[in-house]
Design a protein around this nucleic acid. Structure first.
Lengths: 251, 251
DNA sequence: GACCTACTCCGTACACCGTACGGTACGGCG
DNA sequence: CGCCGTACCGTACGGTGTACGGAGTAGGTC
């Protein structure tokens, strides 16, 4: 999150995430809904970045007074949580998956990455460590745990392996999201930045002191495609898991 | 970053990071310094979280007017960048490391993780993808690249492997940092949270629908120690890398 | 039909934020 | 000496999240 998480009333937040609120009996008809608010917030964040997301802007987009939002949502933190879980629901993981554990983990990882690419603000907010426990988050965790169940691992090993995959996906997603954000928010583009920075960089980063970095740099290796790099890393990672699983099965 | 990155003048930011500014000839003696400002900001972030860090608070801690900071630092974004690189310098990577590539990567990963644990705000800010290029960041990258050089890999494979390790460390660090932050910033503690949330959770997360999650939950597997989980994942990951390296060496 | 009351909507206000601007005091250089 | 680049910073502006209290609405009950 990097923000707050709970507003001290877990029941309220959970009820919100699971949309567990019977419609009110008395009073005027609600002209708004949690879903509409969340959708507007997501759209805003997608367009302008999460930094530009404010309650006033969300309200304005909905043609409504700012404070009206607080009738549906306790505060901005809860709205952010709702956005995360909503967006997580975009990833379609099959209810029943027939395939190897490895294929399942690949699907899990790619699904998360796809969502993160579509909504770059996700990784800077979410806590996919079974902490939020909204419906999408829960489904996601169930899928991942199921992927590595029934292959002879202890519960703890299952959890650790899922964390390994989740951690990797999250870390790489954040790195690429950050680069994208820097490109988008900065008023200079990549090319221009380097033109300006190069003379100064060459003053500080001398070949003699950083030879390996230097060589890699001028080989163009840093211009690796993010998705190819992601796949490469994922396969190495799963190779390591496979070795562990095989040893467990054998011994 | 999830914040801005450059203030449009890369030269200024880089000069700041590398402390490349000859002391002024004319004028009154500076009563402050970039280092003192950065140190105060880091202390503040460590104590109260990065969300509570403001220019006013930093100035107050230094016994100085808010706007005085702007004499030394162009803005808050640059200050954040400086904090990141400063804190990264805490990790001591030996200048010359004699050991296998695997030992070197382990050291690299653990060093980053140690820093991230000491300064939980790090992962929510930094962009360790060779984008900031401050001195600590540069040294860090050089060490990592050197770890996987000379073992028969292409430059691109080296970069991808470093990204794999960095991504994993970063992702896991963020997850544990988030949990810690939630605990710290929330006014309810873990125990109490669960007591309150459990009835509602059991209403939504039924065993029939999420059997695997349920089983893992009640086995206590989620109470895995973060550092043990980290080490486990790191070893699996490096096993996968090892297989790749071996195959490259053989074929 | 009248009233109570839960509910939606939201204007105003407050505390806090980053920082642009311009003024003042300082102190080496010519 | 005076010049002028510099350090320091008070004030102010436009933004933020949200507490509070009031106004209007409409189903339940009599």
């Amino acid at each position: 999150m990097a923000e707050k998480t709970g507003r001290s009333d877990p029941t309220r937040t959970l009820a919100l995430l699971w949309r567990a609120k019977e419609p009110p009996a008395r009073g005027p008809k609600p002209g708004l809904s949690v879903d509409r608010i969340v959708a507007a917030a997501i759209a805003l964040a997608d367009e302008a970045g999460v930094a530009a997301l404010s309650m006033r802007k969300v309200a304005e987009r909905l043609g409504v007074g700012t404070m009206s939002l607080y009738t549906y949502v306790p505060g901005k933190d809860e709205l952010l949580n709702l956005m995360v879980d909503t967006v997580l629901a975009e990833a379609d993981r099959p209810e029943a998956f027939s395939g190897t554990w490895r294929e399942a983990l690949e699907l899990h990882a790619r699904a998360d990455r796809a969502v993160a690419l579509r909504h770059p603000w996700l990784v800077s907010l979410s806590t996919p460590g079974l902490m939020l426990l909204g419906p999408a988050e829960t489904a996601r965790s169930e899928f991942a745990m199921r992927a590595v169940s029934g292959i002879g691992l202890t519960q703890r090993e299952m959890v650790d392996i899922v964390n390994l995959v989740d951690g990797y996906v999250r870390g790489v997603a954040q790195i690429t999201a950050d680069i994208g954000a820097a490109d988008r928010e900065s008023d200079v583009d990549y090319e221009e930045w380097w033109d300006k920075a190069t003379p100064m960089l060459e003053r500080f980063i001398q070949q003699s002191r950083y030879p390996t970095l230097y060589a890699a740099w001028y080989s163009g290796a840093f211009e690796t495609s993010p998705s190819e790099g992601f796949e490469f890393g994922l396969q190495r990672l799963l190779d390591g898991v496979e070795r562990f699983v095989d040893e467990r099965a054998r011994g």
